[in-house]
Amino acid sequence: MTTNPTSDKSAASGLSPEKREDIWALLIAAGVLLVSIAAPDTVHNVFKNLLYLL
């Protein structure tokens, strides 16, 4: 989707910036799924109510 500012170093680390972004996206989504399974009401309350201060 976009260039990584450190793309010049990516070859050395084995993963392209796009693949790294994709894997992080999968990990973050999996984390959200797990937390939502553990505490659905809390997750909903945080993102629908608590984060809105105005």
Binding site: V32, S36, A39, P40, D41, V43, H44, F47, K48
Partner: peptide
């Protein structure tokens, strides 16, 4: 439910 919670995120 978990999917309802995810929908808020």
């Amino acid at each position: 439910t978990p999917f309802w919670a995810m929908n808020a995120v």
